[in-house]
Design a protein around this nucleic acid. Structure first.
Lengths: 245, 245
DNA sequence: AAATACATTTCGAGA
DNA sequence: TCTCGAAGTGTATTT
Protein backbone atom coordinates (compact mmCIF):
# COMPACT_ATOMS: atom_id res chain seq x y z
CA UNK A 1 0.00 0.00 0.00
CA UNK A 2 1.68 3.21 -1.13
CA UNK A 3 1.46 6.37 0.96
CA UNK A 4 -1.43 8.74 0.49
CA UNK A 5 -2.52 11.59 2.74
CA UNK A 6 -5.97 10.02 2.71
CA UNK A 7 -7.84 7.15 1.06
CA UNK A 8 -11.56 6.87 0.33
CA UNK A 9 -13.50 3.65 -0.28
CA UNK A 10 -17.13 3.99 -1.32
CA UNK A 11 -19.53 1.09 -0.80
CA UNK A 12 -16.83 -1.53 -0.31
CA UNK A 13 -18.00 -5.09 0.14
CA UNK A 14 -17.35 -6.58 3.60
CA UNK A 15 -14.37 -8.67 2.52
CA UNK A 16 -12.73 -5.68 0.83
CA UNK A 17 -13.38 -3.53 3.91
CA UNK A 18 -11.97 -6.15 6.29
CA UNK A 19 -8.80 -6.39 4.20
CA UNK A 20 -8.45 -2.62 4.00
CA UNK A 21 -8.80 -2.16 7.78
CA UNK A 22 -6.32 -4.94 8.47
CA UNK A 23 -3.71 -3.30 6.25
CA UNK A 24 -4.18 0.32 7.31
CA UNK A 25 -5.19 0.59 10.98
CA UNK A 26 -1.68 1.03 12.36
CA UNK A 27 -0.86 3.75 9.81
CA UNK A 28 -4.11 5.65 9.42
CA UNK A 29 -7.00 6.83 11.48
CA UNK A 30 -9.93 4.96 9.91
CA UNK A 31 -13.36 6.53 9.75
CA UNK A 32 -16.19 4.14 8.86
CA UNK A 33 -19.74 5.15 8.09
CA UNK A 34 -21.91 2.05 8.10
CA UNK A 35 -25.11 0.50 9.32
CA UNK A 36 -23.87 -1.27 12.42
CA UNK A 37 -24.63 -3.11 15.67
CA UNK A 38 -22.37 -3.03 18.72
CA UNK A 39 -21.99 -5.31 21.74
CA UNK A 40 -19.72 -4.55 24.69
CA UNK A 41 -18.65 -6.86 27.50
CA UNK A 42 -16.23 -5.93 30.28
CA UNK A 43 -16.47 -3.80 33.43
CA UNK A 44 -20.12 -3.49 32.46
CA UNK A 45 -22.04 -4.64 29.38
CA UNK A 46 -24.13 -2.98 26.68
CA UNK A 47 -25.86 -3.48 23.39
CA UNK A 48 -26.41 -0.92 20.61
CA UNK A 49 -28.97 -1.95 18.01
CA UNK A 50 -28.58 -1.75 14.24
CA UNK A 51 -28.49 1.76 12.79
CA UNK A 52 -26.20 4.11 10.84
CA UNK A 53 -23.27 4.97 13.10
CA UNK A 54 -19.82 6.53 12.73
CA UNK A 55 -16.90 4.31 13.72
CA UNK A 56 -13.36 5.59 14.27
CA UNK A 57 -10.29 3.40 14.71
CA UNK A 58 -7.01 5.04 15.71
CA UNK A 59 -3.49 3.67 15.27
CA UNK A 60 -3.02 3.45 19.07
CA UNK A 61 -5.91 0.99 19.39
CA UNK A 62 -8.58 3.51 20.33
CA UNK A 63 -12.08 2.67 19.05
CA UNK A 64 -15.01 5.09 18.97
CA UNK A 65 -18.63 4.55 17.96
CA UNK A 66 -20.42 7.87 17.58
CA UNK A 67 -24.09 8.70 17.24
CA UNK A 68 -25.60 11.92 15.84
CA UNK A 69 -25.46 13.70 19.23
CA UNK A 70 -23.31 14.07 22.34
CA UNK A 71 -19.65 14.69 22.92
CA UNK A 72 -18.96 11.19 24.19
CA UNK A 73 -19.10 8.09 22.02
CA UNK A 74 -21.92 5.58 22.56
CA UNK A 75 -19.41 2.76 22.75
CA UNK A 76 -15.63 2.89 22.82
CA UNK A 77 -12.39 1.16 23.61
CA UNK A 78 -9.43 3.13 25.07
CA UNK A 79 -5.88 3.18 23.66
CA UNK A 80 -3.92 -0.08 23.78
CA UNK A 81 -6.53 -2.40 22.32
CA UNK A 82 -6.06 -4.81 19.45
CA UNK A 83 -8.32 -4.54 16.42
CA UNK A 84 -9.16 -7.39 14.08
CA UNK A 85 -11.51 -7.30 11.10
CA UNK A 86 -13.06 -10.10 9.06
CA UNK A 87 -15.94 -10.87 6.76
CA UNK A 88 -18.53 -13.40 7.92
CA UNK A 89 -21.87 -14.14 6.24
CA UNK A 90 -21.38 -11.01 4.14
CA UNK A 91 -21.05 -8.88 7.27
CA UNK A 92 -17.93 -6.93 8.27
CA UNK A 93 -17.05 -7.90 11.85
CA UNK A 94 -14.70 -5.57 13.74
CA UNK A 95 -13.45 -6.84 17.07
CA UNK A 96 -11.48 -4.81 19.63
CA UNK A 97 -9.87 -6.54 22.61
CA UNK A 98 -8.48 -4.95 25.75
CA UNK A 99 -6.29 -7.22 27.86
CA UNK A 100 -6.59 -5.66 31.32
CA UNK A 101 -9.23 -5.24 32.35
CA UNK A 102 -10.47 -7.89 29.94
CA UNK A 103 -12.98 -6.13 27.71
CA UNK A 104 -14.30 -6.63 24.22
CA UNK A 105 -16.27 -4.58 21.72
CA UNK A 106 -17.68 -6.31 18.66
CA UNK A 107 -19.15 -4.35 15.74
CA UNK A 108 -21.13 -5.90 12.92
CA UNK A 109 -21.36 -3.71 9.80
CA UNK A 110 -23.66 -4.03 6.79
CA UNK A 111 -23.88 -2.22 4.50
CA UNK A 112 -20.72 -0.12 4.60
CA UNK A 113 -21.36 3.29 3.02
CA UNK A 114 -17.90 4.86 3.19
CA UNK A 115 -14.48 4.19 4.62
CA UNK A 116 -12.08 7.10 4.96
CA UNK A 117 -8.49 6.56 6.06
CA UNK A 118 -6.58 9.71 7.04
CA UNK A 119 -3.01 10.42 8.12
CA UNK A 120 -3.54 12.54 11.23
CA UNK A 121 -0.85 14.21 13.33
CA UNK A 122 -1.04 16.09 16.61
CA UNK A 123 0.19 19.64 16.78
CA UNK A 124 1.87 21.10 19.87
CA UNK A 125 -0.73 21.59 22.61
CA UNK A 126 -0.65 23.95 25.58
CA UNK A 127 -3.20 24.40 28.37
CA UNK A 128 -3.68 27.22 30.90
CA UNK A 129 -5.81 27.63 34.03
CA UNK A 130 -5.41 24.23 35.71
CA UNK A 131 -5.33 23.50 39.44
CA UNK A 132 -1.55 23.18 39.56
CA UNK A 133 -1.34 26.57 37.86
CA UNK A 134 -3.49 27.97 40.74
CA UNK A 135 -1.20 26.48 43.39
CA UNK A 136 1.94 27.78 41.66
CA UNK A 137 0.64 31.31 41.84
CA UNK A 138 -0.37 31.00 45.50
CA UNK A 139 3.09 29.61 46.33
CA UNK A 140 4.55 32.85 44.98
CA UNK A 141 1.84 35.01 46.62
CA UNK A 142 1.00 33.37 49.99
CA UNK A 143 -0.94 36.47 51.08
CA UNK A 144 -3.69 35.26 48.73
CA UNK A 145 -4.51 32.72 51.47
CA UNK A 146 -4.15 35.20 54.35
CA UNK A 147 -1.64 37.63 55.78
CA UNK A 148 1.17 35.81 57.52
CA UNK A 149 0.58 32.52 55.76
CA UNK A 150 3.81 30.65 55.06
CA UNK A 151 3.84 27.67 52.68
CA UNK A 152 5.82 24.65 53.94
CA UNK A 153 5.21 21.94 51.36
CA UNK A 154 3.39 21.49 48.11
CA UNK A 155 1.86 18.04 47.57
CA UNK A 156 2.57 16.85 51.10
CA UNK A 157 2.19 13.07 51.36
CA UNK A 158 0.11 11.71 54.23
CA UNK A 159 -1.06 8.20 55.00
CA UNK A 160 -4.41 8.97 53.41
CA UNK A 161 -3.51 11.07 50.42
CA UNK A 162 -1.73 14.17 49.22
CA UNK A 163 -2.32 17.58 50.77
CA UNK A 164 -2.20 20.21 47.98
CA UNK A 165 -0.47 22.82 50.08
CA UNK A 166 0.71 22.62 53.70
CA UNK A 167 1.69 25.74 55.63
CA UNK A 168 1.65 27.65 58.90
CA UNK A 169 -0.28 30.72 59.94
CA UNK A 170 1.19 33.68 61.81
CA UNK A 171 0.42 31.98 65.16
CA UNK A 172 2.30 28.85 64.22
CA UNK A 173 -0.77 26.69 63.61
CA UNK A 174 -0.67 24.05 60.90
CA UNK A 175 -2.70 25.04 57.83
CA UNK A 176 -3.91 22.41 55.36
CA UNK A 177 -5.03 23.90 52.03
CA UNK A 178 -7.13 22.01 49.53
CA UNK A 179 -7.43 23.68 46.09
CA UNK A 180 -10.22 23.41 43.54
CA UNK A 181 -10.20 25.13 40.15
CA UNK A 182 -14.00 25.21 40.13
CA UNK A 183 -16.96 25.28 42.50
CA UNK A 184 -16.16 23.20 45.60
CA UNK A 185 -18.69 20.63 46.80
CA UNK A 186 -19.30 18.33 49.76
CA UNK A 187 -16.84 15.73 48.47
CA UNK A 188 -14.03 18.25 48.65
CA UNK A 189 -15.01 19.26 52.19
CA UNK A 190 -15.09 15.59 53.18
CA UNK A 191 -11.60 15.12 51.80
CA UNK A 192 -10.25 18.16 53.67
CA UNK A 193 -12.01 17.02 56.86
CA UNK A 194 -10.30 13.63 56.63
CA UNK A 195 -6.88 15.27 56.28
CA UNK A 196 -7.49 17.59 59.24
CA UNK A 197 -8.99 14.84 61.44
CA UNK A 198 -6.04 12.53 60.88
CA UNK A 199 -3.16 15.03 60.81
CA UNK A 200 -0.65 14.55 63.67
CA UNK A 201 -1.66 17.20 66.22
CA UNK A 202 1.33 19.30 67.30
CA UNK A 203 1.54 20.43 70.95
CA UNK A 204 0.09 23.83 71.60
CA UNK A 205 -0.98 24.41 68.02
CA UNK A 206 -4.17 23.86 66.10
CA UNK A 207 -4.59 22.18 62.71
CA UNK A 208 -6.65 24.42 60.41
CA UNK A 209 -8.18 23.33 57.12
CA UNK A 210 -8.81 25.82 54.34
CA UNK A 211 -10.68 25.06 51.14
CA UNK A 212 -9.45 27.35 48.36
CA UNK A 213 -11.81 27.65 45.39
CA UNK A 214 -13.63 30.15 43.18
CA UNK A 215 -16.94 29.11 44.74
CA UNK A 216 -18.58 26.70 47.17
CA UNK A 217 -21.98 25.02 47.23
CA UNK A 218 -24.43 25.71 50.07
CA UNK A 219 -24.30 22.15 51.37
CA UNK A 220 -20.52 22.18 51.24
CA UNK A 221 -20.37 25.45 53.19
CA UNK A 222 -22.68 23.95 55.80
CA UNK A 223 -20.55 20.83 56.15
CA UNK A 224 -17.42 22.99 56.26
CA UNK A 225 -18.74 25.00 59.21
CA UNK A 226 -19.97 21.90 61.03
CA UNK A 227 -16.45 20.48 60.81
CA UNK A 228 -14.84 23.77 61.87
CA UNK A 229 -13.07 24.28 58.55
CA UNK A 230 -12.55 27.46 56.52
CA UNK A 231 -13.15 28.70 53.01
CA UNK A 232 -11.01 31.11 50.99
CA UNK A 233 -12.59 32.40 47.80
CA UNK A 234 -10.10 32.66 44.96
CA UNK A 235 -11.15 33.04 41.38
CA UNK A 236 -9.58 32.82 37.98
CA UNK A 237 -9.67 36.56 37.39
CA UNK A 238 -7.84 37.37 40.63
CA UNK A 239 -5.18 34.77 39.88
CA UNK A 240 -4.66 36.13 36.37
CA UNK A 241 -3.58 39.46 37.88
CA UNK A 242 -0.75 37.68 39.69
CA UNK A 243 0.08 35.32 36.83
CA UNK A 244 2.84 37.33 35.11
CA UNK A 245 3.65 40.45 37.11
CA UNK B 1 -29.55 20.56 -1.23
CA UNK B 2 -31.13 17.22 -2.08
CA UNK B 3 -30.94 14.32 0.32
CA UNK B 4 -28.02 11.92 0.15
CA UNK B 5 -26.96 9.31 2.71
CA UNK B 6 -23.52 10.88 2.54
CA UNK B 7 -21.63 13.56 0.63
CA UNK B 8 -17.90 13.77 -0.07
CA UNK B 9 -15.94 16.91 -0.99
CA UNK B 10 -12.31 16.47 -1.94
CA UNK B 11 -9.92 19.41 -1.70
CA UNK B 12 -12.63 22.06 -1.49
CA UNK B 13 -11.43 25.64 -1.39
CA UNK B 14 -12.12 27.50 1.89
CA UNK B 15 -15.10 29.45 0.55
CA UNK B 16 -16.72 26.30 -0.83
CA UNK B 17 -16.10 24.48 2.45
CA UNK B 18 -17.54 27.32 4.52
CA UNK B 19 -20.67 27.36 2.39
CA UNK B 20 -21.04 23.58 2.58
CA UNK B 21 -20.71 23.52 6.39
CA UNK B 22 -23.20 26.37 6.75
CA UNK B 23 -25.80 24.50 4.68
CA UNK B 24 -25.36 21.02 6.11
CA UNK B 25 -24.38 21.10 9.79
CA UNK B 26 -27.92 20.81 11.16
CA UNK B 27 -28.71 17.84 8.91
CA UNK B 28 -25.44 15.91 8.75
CA UNK B 29 -22.58 14.95 10.95
CA UNK B 30 -19.64 16.65 9.25
CA UNK B 31 -16.20 15.08 9.29
CA UNK B 32 -13.37 17.36 8.20
CA UNK B 33 -9.80 16.30 7.59
CA UNK B 34 -7.65 19.37 7.30
CA UNK B 35 -4.45 21.03 8.40
CA UNK B 36 -5.72 23.13 11.29
CA UNK B 37 -4.99 25.28 14.33
CA UNK B 38 -7.28 25.52 17.34
CA UNK B 39 -7.69 28.09 20.10
CA UNK B 40 -9.98 27.67 23.10
CA UNK B 41 -11.07 30.25 25.65
CA UNK B 42 -13.52 29.63 28.47
CA UNK B 43 -13.31 27.86 31.85
CA UNK B 44 -9.65 27.47 30.94
CA UNK B 45 -7.68 28.27 27.77
CA UNK B 46 -5.61 26.30 25.27
CA UNK B 47 -3.82 26.44 21.97
CA UNK B 48 -3.28 23.60 19.48
CA UNK B 49 -0.69 24.37 16.81
CA UNK B 50 -1.03 23.79 13.08
CA UNK B 51 -1.10 20.14 12.01
CA UNK B 52 -3.37 17.61 10.28
CA UNK B 53 -6.34 16.99 12.59
CA UNK B 54 -9.77 15.39 12.34
CA UNK B 55 -12.70 17.69 13.05
CA UNK B 56 -16.25 16.49 13.69
CA UNK B 57 -19.32 18.71 13.86
CA UNK B 58 -22.63 17.17 14.99
CA UNK B 59 -26.16 18.50 14.35
CA UNK B 60 -26.65 19.10 18.12
CA UNK B 61 -23.77 21.58 18.22
CA UNK B 62 -21.11 19.17 19.44
CA UNK B 63 -17.61 19.86 18.12
CA UNK B 64 -14.67 17.46 18.33
CA UNK B 65 -11.04 17.90 17.32
CA UNK B 66 -9.24 14.56 17.31
CA UNK B 67 -5.57 13.71 17.08
CA UNK B 68 -4.05 10.35 16.05
CA UNK B 69 -4.24 8.94 19.59
CA UNK B 70 -6.43 8.89 22.71
CA UNK B 71 -10.10 8.33 23.32
CA UNK B 72 -10.76 11.95 24.21
CA UNK B 73 -10.64 14.80 21.72
CA UNK B 74 -7.82 17.35 22.05
CA UNK B 75 -10.35 20.17 21.92
CA UNK B 76 -14.12 20.05 21.91
CA UNK B 77 -17.38 21.84 22.47
CA UNK B 78 -20.34 20.07 24.13
CA UNK B 79 -23.89 19.85 22.69
CA UNK B 80 -25.83 23.11 22.47
CA UNK B 81 -23.19 25.25 20.82
CA UNK B 82 -23.59 27.35 17.71
CA UNK B 83 -21.31 26.79 14.75
CA UNK B 84 -20.43 29.37 12.14
CA UNK B 85 -18.07 28.98 9.20
CA UNK B 86 -16.48 31.54 6.91
CA UNK B 87 -13.59 32.09 4.58
CA UNK B 88 -10.98 34.70 5.50
CA UNK B 89 -7.63 35.26 3.80
CA UNK B 90 -8.09 31.96 2.00
CA UNK B 91 -8.46 30.15 5.36
CA UNK B 92 -11.59 28.32 6.50
CA UNK B 93 -12.52 29.63 9.95
CA UNK B 94 -14.89 27.51 12.05
CA UNK B 95 -16.18 29.13 15.23
CA UNK B 96 -18.19 27.38 17.95
CA UNK B 97 -19.81 29.40 20.72
CA UNK B 98 -21.24 28.13 24.00
CA UNK B 99 -23.45 30.59 25.84
CA UNK B 100 -23.14 29.41 29.45
CA UNK B 101 -20.50 29.09 30.54
CA UNK B 102 -19.27 31.47 27.87
CA UNK B 103 -16.74 29.52 25.87
CA UNK B 104 -15.39 29.66 22.35
CA UNK B 105 -13.40 27.36 20.09
CA UNK B 106 -11.96 28.78 16.88
CA UNK B 107 -10.47 26.52 14.21
CA UNK B 108 -8.45 27.76 11.25
CA UNK B 109 -8.21 25.26 8.38
CA UNK B 110 -5.87 25.29 5.41
CA UNK B 111 -5.62 23.25 3.31
CA UNK B 112 -8.79 21.15 3.58
CA UNK B 113 -8.11 17.61 2.37
CA UNK B 114 -11.59 16.07 2.65
CA UNK B 115 -15.03 16.88 3.97
CA UNK B 116 -17.42 14.01 4.57
CA UNK B 117 -21.04 14.66 5.56
CA UNK B 118 -22.96 11.63 6.85
CA UNK B 119 -26.54 11.03 7.95
CA UNK B 120 -26.04 9.23 11.28
CA UNK B 121 -28.78 7.80 13.50
CA UNK B 122 -28.62 6.26 16.96
CA UNK B 123 -29.87 2.74 17.47
CA UNK B 124 -31.57 1.60 20.70
CA UNK B 125 -29.00 1.41 23.48
CA UNK B 126 -29.08 -0.63 26.68
CA UNK B 127 -26.55 -0.79 29.52
CA UNK B 128 -26.05 -3.31 32.36
CA UNK B 129 -23.92 -3.41 35.53
CA UNK B 130 -24.30 0.14 36.88
CA UNK B 131 -24.32 1.21 40.53
CA UNK B 132 -28.09 1.52 40.76
CA UNK B 133 -28.35 -2.01 39.38
CA UNK B 134 -26.12 -3.12 42.32
CA UNK B 135 -28.32 -1.41 44.90
CA UNK B 136 -31.52 -2.85 43.41
CA UNK B 137 -30.20 -6.36 43.86
CA UNK B 138 -29.08 -5.70 47.45
CA UNK B 139 -32.53 -4.25 48.27
CA UNK B 140 -34.01 -7.61 47.28
CA UNK B 141 -31.26 -9.59 49.02
CA UNK B 142 -30.30 -7.66 52.19
CA UNK B 143 -28.33 -10.67 53.50
CA UNK B 144 -25.66 -9.66 50.96
CA UNK B 145 -24.74 -6.89 53.44
CA UNK B 146 -25.01 -9.10 56.53
CA UNK B 147 -27.49 -11.43 58.26
CA UNK B 148 -30.24 -9.46 59.93
CA UNK B 149 -29.72 -6.31 57.87
CA UNK B 150 -32.98 -4.54 57.11
CA UNK B 151 -33.11 -1.75 54.49
CA UNK B 152 -35.04 1.34 55.54
CA UNK B 153 -34.54 3.80 52.70
CA UNK B 154 -32.81 3.94 49.37
CA UNK B 155 -31.31 7.33 48.48
CA UNK B 156 -31.92 8.84 51.93
CA UNK B 157 -31.52 12.61 51.87
CA UNK B 158 -29.33 14.21 54.52
CA UNK B 159 -28.16 17.77 54.93
CA UNK B 160 -24.88 16.90 53.26
CA UNK B 161 -25.88 14.53 50.52
CA UNK B 162 -27.71 11.34 49.64
CA UNK B 163 -27.03 8.09 51.46
CA UNK B 164 -27.21 5.24 48.92
CA UNK B 165 -28.88 2.82 51.31
CA UNK B 166 -29.95 3.35 54.94
CA UNK B 167 -30.88 0.40 57.17
CA UNK B 168 -30.71 -1.21 60.60
CA UNK B 169 -28.73 -4.18 61.84
CA UNK B 170 -30.13 -6.95 64.04
CA UNK B 171 -29.28 -4.98 67.18
CA UNK B 172 -31.18 -1.94 66.01
CA UNK B 173 -28.15 0.18 65.12
CA UNK B 174 -28.33 2.55 62.19
CA UNK B 175 -26.39 1.30 59.15
CA UNK B 176 -25.28 3.70 56.43
CA UNK B 177 -24.27 1.93 53.19
CA UNK B 178 -22.23 3.60 50.47
CA UNK B 179 -22.04 1.66 47.19
CA UNK B 180 -19.33 1.71 44.54
CA UNK B 181 -19.46 -0.28 41.31
CA UNK B 182 -15.67 -0.41 41.21
CA UNK B 183 -12.63 -0.30 43.51
CA UNK B 184 -13.33 2.05 46.43
CA UNK B 185 -10.77 4.71 47.30
CA UNK B 186 -10.07 7.26 50.03
CA UNK B 187 -12.56 9.74 48.56
CA UNK B 188 -15.36 7.26 49.09
CA UNK B 189 -14.27 6.56 52.66
CA UNK B 190 -14.14 10.31 53.31
CA UNK B 191 -17.70 10.67 52.04
CA UNK B 192 -18.98 7.81 54.20
CA UNK B 193 -17.11 9.19 57.21
CA UNK B 194 -18.83 12.55 56.76
CA UNK B 195 -22.26 10.91 56.64
CA UNK B 196 -21.58 8.83 59.76
CA UNK B 197 -20.02 11.75 61.69
CA UNK B 198 -22.97 14.01 61.03
CA UNK B 199 -25.86 11.53 61.23
CA UNK B 200 -28.28 12.27 64.13
CA UNK B 201 -27.18 9.84 66.86
CA UNK B 202 -30.13 7.86 68.23
CA UNK B 203 -30.20 7.05 71.96
CA UNK B 204 -28.72 3.70 72.87
CA UNK B 205 -27.79 2.81 69.32
CA UNK B 206 -24.67 3.20 67.25
CA UNK B 207 -24.35 4.57 63.71
CA UNK B 208 -22.37 2.15 61.55
CA UNK B 209 -20.96 2.94 58.12
CA UNK B 210 -20.40 0.21 55.55
CA UNK B 211 -18.62 0.71 52.24
CA UNK B 212 -19.94 -1.82 49.71
CA UNK B 213 -17.68 -2.37 46.71
CA UNK B 214 -15.93 -5.06 44.66
CA UNK B 215 -12.57 -3.91 46.05
CA UNK B 216 -10.86 -1.29 48.21
CA UNK B 217 -7.46 0.41 47.99
CA UNK B 218 -4.91 -0.01 50.80
CA UNK B 219 -5.02 3.67 51.78
CA UNK B 220 -8.80 3.57 51.79
CA UNK B 221 -8.86 0.48 54.02
CA UNK B 222 -6.46 2.21 56.42
CA UNK B 223 -8.61 5.34 56.57
CA UNK B 224 -11.72 3.19 56.96
CA UNK B 225 -10.31 1.44 60.04
CA UNK B 226 -9.04 4.68 61.53
CA UNK B 227 -12.58 6.08 61.32
CA UNK B 228 -14.13 2.87 62.68
CA UNK B 229 -16.00 2.11 59.48
CA UNK B 230 -16.58 -1.21 57.75
CA UNK B 231 -16.10 -2.75 54.33
CA UNK B 232 -18.29 -5.35 52.63
CA UNK B 233 -16.81 -6.90 49.50
CA UNK B 234 -19.40 -7.41 46.78
CA UNK B 235 -18.41 -8.11 43.22
CA UNK B 236 -20.08 -8.19 39.86
CA UNK B 237 -20.01 -11.98 39.61
CA UNK B 238 -21.76 -12.48 42.97
CA UNK B 239 -24.45 -9.96 42.07
CA UNK B 240 -25.05 -11.62 38.71
CA UNK B 241 -26.10 -14.81 40.54
CA UNK B 242 -28.86 -12.87 42.28
CA UNK B 243 -29.79 -10.77 39.25
CA UNK B 244 -32.62 -12.90 37.85
CA UNK B 245 -33.40 -15.84 40.19
C1' DA C 1 -31.51 26.88 35.71
C1' DA C 2 -28.85 24.96 39.51
C1' DA C 3 -27.32 21.17 42.30
C1' DT C 4 -25.94 16.53 42.86
C1' DA C 5 -23.71 12.10 41.95
C1' DC C 6 -22.49 8.40 38.48
C1' DA C 7 -19.22 7.02 34.73
C1' DT C 8 -17.12 0.91 30.74
C1' DT C 9 -15.20 7.86 33.31
C1' DT C 10 -10.14 9.00 30.76
C1' DC C 11 -5.66 10.74 31.54
C1' DG C 12 -1.34 11.85 33.56
C1' DA C 13 2.10 11.71 37.26
C1' DG C 14 4.57 9.24 40.63
C1' DA C 15 6.08 5.14 43.07
C1' DT D 1 2.53 -2.02 36.57
C1' DC D 2 -0.42 0.00 39.87
C1' DT D 3 -2.24 3.97 42.63
C1' DC D 4 -4.05 8.28 43.12
C1' DG D 5 -6.27 12.58 41.93
C1' DA D 6 -7.49 16.19 38.28
C1' DA D 7 -10.50 17.22 34.32
C1' DG D 8 -12.43 22.87 29.97
C1' DT D 9 -14.47 16.30 32.95
C1' DG D 10 -19.64 14.84 30.41
C1' DT D 11 -24.29 13.22 31.47
C1' DA D 12 -28.60 12.20 33.65
C1' DT D 13 -31.69 13.22 37.42
C1' DT D 14 -33.95 15.96 40.61
C1' DT D 15 -35.27 20.27 42.69
Amino acid sequence: MSYEKYVILENPDPAQAAEFIRLSWRRYVIVIFARSMVTYRGRAASRLDWDDHLIIIKPDGTLLVHGPTKRDPINWQPPGCTVTSMERDNVLVIRSRRPRPREEVVIDCNPIYVILAVDIRRGLFRMYGTESWMISIVMRHPELIEDGFVPIAREHQTKYGIIDLLGRDREGNIVICEFKRRMADVQHVAQLALYVDTFPRPKGARVRGILVAPGISDKALLALKEKGLEYRRLNHATLMKYAEG
